[in-house]
Computed example of a mutant assay.
Amino acid sequence: MYAVTVTFTIAQDRMADFLPLMLENAQTSLAEEPGCHQFDVCTDPGLPDRVFLYELYDDRAAFETHLQSPHFRSFDAAVTAMFAEKSVACFAEVR
C-alpha cells in the first residue's frame, strides 16, 4: 500500500466553498480509480481552518494516476485560491 496525507489550511471564509469540492473529489477517486482504496476527508472542530486527508493507493503509480485524472485536475484548479497552505506526505509500506 501507498499512503498519502494532505493537510490544507483553508483561507478565511472559504471552507464552505472548499469542502463540497473536496468531498466530490474523494468520492470520484474512490468510485473511478481502481487503485484508490481509501480517501478520508477529516476536520477538527478545534482547528476550523484545517482539512486533513488520508488516502490509500495500491502503489505510487496508482497515486500518480490519481494526480493525472481529469477530476483531480479540475478539483486542483478550482481550489488553488481557496487555501493558504498545503502539505503533502507520502508513505510506502515497508515489507
Score class of each variant (00 low, 15 high):
35 G>A: 06
40 D>Q: 05
26 A>V: 02
7 T>L: 14
55 E>R: 06
14 R>V: 00
63 F>I: 12
3 A>E: 14
16 A>C: 04
69 S>E: 10
47 L>M: 15
90 C>D: 12
27 Q>C: 07
53 L>Y: 11
6 V>E: 12
86 K>R: 15
28 T>V: 06
71 H>G: 04
36 C>Q: 04
31 A>G: 05
23 L>W: 11
19 L>E: 02
46 G>P: 06
73 R>M: 12
76 D>T: 08
28 T>K: 11
52 F>M: 13
18 F>C: 01
39 F>V: 00
8 F>H: 10
83 F>H: 14
60 R>C: 08
38 Q>T: 13
76 D>R: 09
41 V>G: 02
59 D>G: 03
67 L>V: 10
6 V>I: 14
30 L>W: 03
19 L>Q: 05
75 F>M: 01
30 L>G: 01
73 R>F: 10
19 L>V: 07
12 Q>M: 06
10 I>G: 00
44 D>W: 05
13 D>P: 00
28 T>M: 03
15 M>S: 01
36 C>P: 07
23 L>E: 15
78 A>T: 07
16 A>F: 04
40 D>Y: 04
58 D>E: 07
59 D>I: 00
22 M>N: 06
20 P>S: 02
5 T>V: 13
45 P>T: 03
91 F>V: 08
65 T>C: 11
22 M>E: 10
95 R>D: 08
30 L>F: 03
82 M>Q: 04
71 H>Q: 03
93 E>I: 06
65 T>I: 11
53 L>V: 06
33 E>Y: 10
17 D>Q: 06
89 A>Y: 15
29 S>R: 05
61 A>R: 09
93 E>D: 13
52 F>T: 13
37 H>V: 05
50 R>D: 10
69 S>Q: 09
8 F>D: 06
2 Y>H: 10
39 F>Y: 12
93 E>M: 08
36 C>A: 08
58 D>M: 03
4 V>Q: 11
39 F>E: 00
22 M>F: 08
17 D>G: 04
47 L>D: 15
67 L>K: 14
61 A>D: 13
15 M>T: 00
57 Y>K: 02
53 L>K: 04
19 L>F: 02
6 V>L: 13
4 V>D: 12
33 E>V: 07
92 A>D: 14
84 A>V: 11
48 P>H: 00
81 A>M: 07
42 C>G: 07
2 Y>I: 00
91 F>Y: 15
26 A>C: 01
36 C>F: 08
36 C>R: 01
14 R>N: 03
47 L>F: 15
55 E>C: 05
45 P>N: 01
82 M>R: 02
66 H>F: 12
88 V>R: 11
1 M>Y: 10
17 D>K: 02
70 P>Y: 15
6 V>T: 13
67 L>Y: 14
67 L>W: 11
48 P>T: 00
14 R>G: 01
71 H>V: 04
24 E>K: 05
50 R>L: 13
93 E>F: 12
34 P>R: 01
77 A>P: 04
11 A>Y: 05
45 P>R: 02
61 A>E: 10
40 D>F: 06
60 R>H: 15
74 S>Y: 13
25 N>P: 01
1 M>P: 13
69 S>F: 14
71 H>S: 03
79 V>A: 03
64 E>M: 08
8 F>A: 06
90 C>F: 14
89 A>Q: 15
74 S>F: 13
47 L>T: 13
9 T>K: 11
39 F>H: 06
12 Q>D: 12
